[in-house]
Design a protein around this nucleic acid. Structure first.
Length: 829
RNA sequence: GGGCGAGUGGCGGAACGGUAUACGCGCAACACUUAAAAUGUUGUGUUCAAAAGAACAUGAGGGUUCGAAUCCCUCCUCGCCCACCA
């Protein structure tokens, strides 16, 4: 067996010295920008999941380099974040020091895996050089009215007395102490991502993202077109505005419901007879946690506003008004018209509080002349029998609209009552404030006279001050709030007394534009040089986790779209193509986690088996896009495979003296398969094809050198170390025969990773003969080797001459013969 | 409740209208060895059979087709994401 430790160290050093993976700004070659999500440098070190994603993109980038592209494959650190801050709180060590320690460890690990990163472009979001530009972008948002402050409920743990980020709330409980999280009102910064909802939706049409990613983003943005309809209040000037996508059901609206946060209630308070109880209900609802409010199993609650009535604009009937927490203040107008006969939630509510239910849509049975009509009819029958019907149908109990199709009735009824068309999105504005230390300070100053004043661009970066206590304050403010020296400043406008904003940005900020900084990481005048951005953007291929689809991936598209609009990014969309890998689970099929003790430490595997082996195994273990369980035993198989290759290089005769047309054909088939598989990310089948090829070689004594060299080249992206070693054969000391001794062995001076990717000869991938399958009634009964492209007549002749077949068709009538060229012949009896 | 995906040997999986179980793991026998490890060779879906061979097998049921793991319908199970979005 070979000494992988020695070999891997040697090449790591050499590649770095010779800078073979460094990207050049501007080149005659076509460019390729491959990107992986830069890691958060946690204290636990590299996860096997990182390796899966990074290896896949590394293989693609290495192949692109060999295909003749100028490749950029950069790396950096998403270094701001809560775990580091929590560690700092616990141990009293500055997050900067913790981050340094962790990134050093990650760097060592990533380098040991042989990824072809351009390390000279390394970035770190927690460095002032970097976050200066994150703050700068925030100021642009501010200047364009896309950053604003608003009173918002934050997650508040009453036990720890601390404001929590959404990601710190697990199942409605505090991640630290397990206590139930409450809501607390606080002024927060928000980014107006909703203004970009339509752009983000449209942009999806132009990019090559996996379909499921597009679907998820589309659903997350959640565009829905509907109408706003005004309901008059009896004997009152005020009107209640509701949003609905189903104006066709208006005649069935038997009551209105307002969200507990609704302000109109207070304006009506003097008319409400049971105001005391109503106020109580509102107070309780507001205090409820998200978990309590959205728990679907729970019964619906609500209270009627006694003494006032609304008027249904279609029926002109008086209908009651209720307040209930199943209506959300944050969506639509915060008020709904309830149609219990045609909405499940309204139905449940009406049933509980004995409110009238009026059917206005009759489902129509659709009989379609196709084989599945029976099933459709059965489904429709169910619809008729159910108590509420949410689908389309024919209008009833709707005055002059009776008999009309519900789709058509939508627009007719809007005309009739005078509704206004309105588009709603599920997407909410992005809460951008965190009451934490370890993040980018928000560059805003509050002046007693001038109010909100943005920091001048030339004063950036606003550096994080050094502090001793990283714990947020009892009031829920960031720990920065107590650093008087830092907080108290002069107003940049009037020079008067002012205070700094003490909230910091969420850890999604730095990662929202990092792909641009890679293009010019040391620029201190601009976020990046425009020419360089223009050359490299967009990212050609971005691979990452499915869990980032609705947050990071959407946020970064938003930032890039915005930067494009204000002339600071060259493309609208940052990513041309986005793919995603499946998660690696523990051996038992559960998520790897410290508490379960099923975390695999890559360091140990690299030491024991080598980087080439873990890379290969993670590519071979299963389909790249699917979740898969780790299996230590699988490593052995990959290790044996590389061992076989090593043995062939050691023991077999490799020389251009030999010719082997058969093996050459196999090689060309393998090149074709592996090339395609890499493009399709079918890495598991690519590896299996490489194995099949080696199994063939292993049976031979003499191997033609050119075949062997080409094989090494197509293996090189997967296993860069062993292939480089065998390619070069420079080191005679580590027990390897050197090029002088064996004379005709390989002895290349240039790296294999700079070689050209072998082309396959299409002719050589085609077979001369094939196994023709002979079927009787679609079942394989015999097979025989015949020349390709034979005609049906010839095939029939061959088929009928087979003894086995003769027996099968004896005394039977032949109905039909189906012939698929170069595949099979099927005799139907 | 909604969306997406997946159910194939003892296990990870391959094939994604045309030879089901490639490749790998595991297991068994043999070879090498004093022995073990490593390595190599051979075998390995189930049932019946001495063998040739045959029948049955891709979550369950139905359909389309000369032919279905693959396409369509119904149902079941599991995973992930979202969720009172009017």
């Amino acid at each position: 067996m070979f000494n992988h430790q020695k070999i891997e160290k040697k090449w790591q050093k050499k590649w770095e010295e010779e800078r073979i993976y460094n990207a050049k700004d501007f080149s005659k070659k076509p460019k390729f920008y491959g990107l992986i999500e830069f890691p958060y440098p946690s204290g636990e070190g590299l996860h096997v999941g990182h390796i899966r994603s990074n290896t896949a993109m590394d293989i693609i980038c290495r192949k692109r380099r060999m295909d003749g592209y100028n490749v950029l494959y950069p790396i950096g650190w998403d270094a701001f974040g809560l775990p580091t801050e929590n560690y700092a709180i616990k141990k009293g060590i500055h997050p900067k020091i913790v981050t340094k320690k962790n990134t050093d460890n990650f760097k060592k690990q990533l380098k040991s895996l042989g990824f072809s990163f351009d390390w000279e472009r390394e970035i770190n979001t927690s460095e002032p050089d970097y976050y200066k530009w994150t703050q700068w972008i925030f100021l642009q948002f501010y200047k364009h009215g896309l950053a604003y402050k608003k009173k918002m409920p934050i997650n508040w743990c009453p036990f720890c007395k601390i404001g929590l980020a959404n990601e710190e709330v697990v199942n409605g409980c505090c991640e630290r102490c397990g206590g139930l999280v409450e809501k607390k009102e606080k002024e927060q910064w928000l980014l107006r991502i909703t203004k970009y909802a339509d752009k983000l939706l449209k942009g999806l049409k132009e990019v090559d993202f996996l379909e499921k990613i597009k679907v998820q983003q589309t659903n997350w943005i959640g565009k829905s077109e509907g109408v706003e309809i005004n309901f008059e209040i009896k004997n009152h000037k005020l009107k209640i505005k509701v949003f609905t996508t189903r104006p066709d059901t208006l005649f069935g609206a038997t009551y209105l419901v307002l969200a507990p946060e609704s302000e109109i209630v207070f304006q009506l308070s003097d008319k409400i007879l049971n105001w005391k109880e109503v106020k109580k209900y509102i107070a309780i609802a507001k205090r409820k946690s998200d978990l309590q409010r959205t728990d679907l199993i729970k019964e619906k609650t609500g209270i009627e506003l006694k003494g006032i009535k609304a008027v249904n604009p279609a029926t002109k009937k008086e209908i009651p008004i209720w307040i209930a927490d199943y209506v959300l203040s944050s969506y639509g107008t915060g008020a709904i018209m309830a149609v219990p006969a045609h909405d499940k939630r309204d139905f449940e509510f009406a049933k509980k509080f004995k409110l009238p239910i009026v059917k206005v849509i009759e489902p129509i049975l659709m009989y379609v002349a196709n084989p599945t009509a029976k099933a459709n009819a059965a489904v429709s029958q169910l619809a008729i029998e159910s108590e509420f019907w949410e689908g389309d149908g024919e209008l009833i109990n709707s005055g002059k609209f009776n008999g009309m199709d519900s789709q058509k009735a939508k627009w007719e009824i809007i005309k009739f009552v005078g509704g206004k068309k309105q588009t709603q999105y599920h997407l909410r504005d992005w809460i951008f404030s965190r009451q934490h230390y370890w993040g980018e300070p928000i560059p805003i100053i509050f002046c007693e006279k001038c109010g909100e004043v943005p920091v001048s661009e030339k004063d950036l970066p606003i550096k994080l001050p050094n502090i001793k206590n990283y714990k947020p304050t009892d009031t829920g403010e960031s720990p920065l709030a107590v650093i008087k020296k830092w907080v108290n400043v002069k107003c940049p406008k009037c020079g008067g007394k002012a205070k700094r904003e003490t909230d910091t940005m969420p850890n999604w900020a730095g990662s929202s534009w990092y792909f641009l900084r890679y293009l010019d990481p040391k620029n201190n005048k601009k976020l990046a040089d425009f020419k360089k951005m223009k050359y490299w953007m967009p990212v050609d291929w971005y691979n990452g986790g499915m869990e980032h689809t609705t947050l990071h991936l959407l946020y970064s598209r938003f930032w890039n779209n915005f930067l494009y609009d204000i002339g600071f990014a060259p493309t609208k969309e940052p990513y041309k193509k986005r793919t995603s890998q499946g998660m690696i689970l523990g051996e038992g099929g559960e998520k790897m986690s410290k508490s379960k003790g099923n975390v695999i430490n890559p360091d140990f595997i690299i030491k024991e088996f080598g980087a080439d082996v873990i890379r290969l195994y993670e590519m071979f273990m299963g389909p790249f896009d699917q979740a898969i369980n780790w299996d230590n035993k699988g490593l052995g198989g990959c290790s044996r495979f590389l061992g076989k290759i090593w043995n062939i290089a050691e023991k077999n005769n490799i020389s251009n003296k030999f010719k082997n047309p058969d093996l050459e054909k196999s090689l060309h088939q393998t090149i074709k398969k592996v090339s395609n598989d890499i493009e399709m990310m079918n890495f598991n089948t690519a590896v299996s094809n490489l194995m099949i090829f080696i199994n063939k070689c292993y049976k031979l004594k003499d191997i033609p050198q050119s075949i062997w060299e080409n094989f090494l080249k197509i293996l090189a992206p997967f296993s860069p170390f062993i292939t480089e070693e065998l390619w070069s054969r420079l080191d005679s000391k580590s027990g390897i025969r050197d090029s002088k001794e064996s004379g005709e062995k390989l002895g290349h001076k240039k790296s294999i990773h700079l070689e050209k990717w072998p082309e396959y000869n299409l002719k050589l991938t085609e077979k001369e003969k094939f196994e023709m399958i002979i079927q009787i009634n679609g079942k394989m009964r015999d097979k025989t080797s015949v020349m390709v492209n034979i005609s049906q007549k010839e095939a029939e002749k061959i088929a009928f001459s087979q003894k086995k077949i003769e027996n099968w068709i004896k005394n039977k009538k032949i109905k039909k013969i189906i012939f698929i060229p170069n595949r099979l012949i099927n005799i139907v009896l």
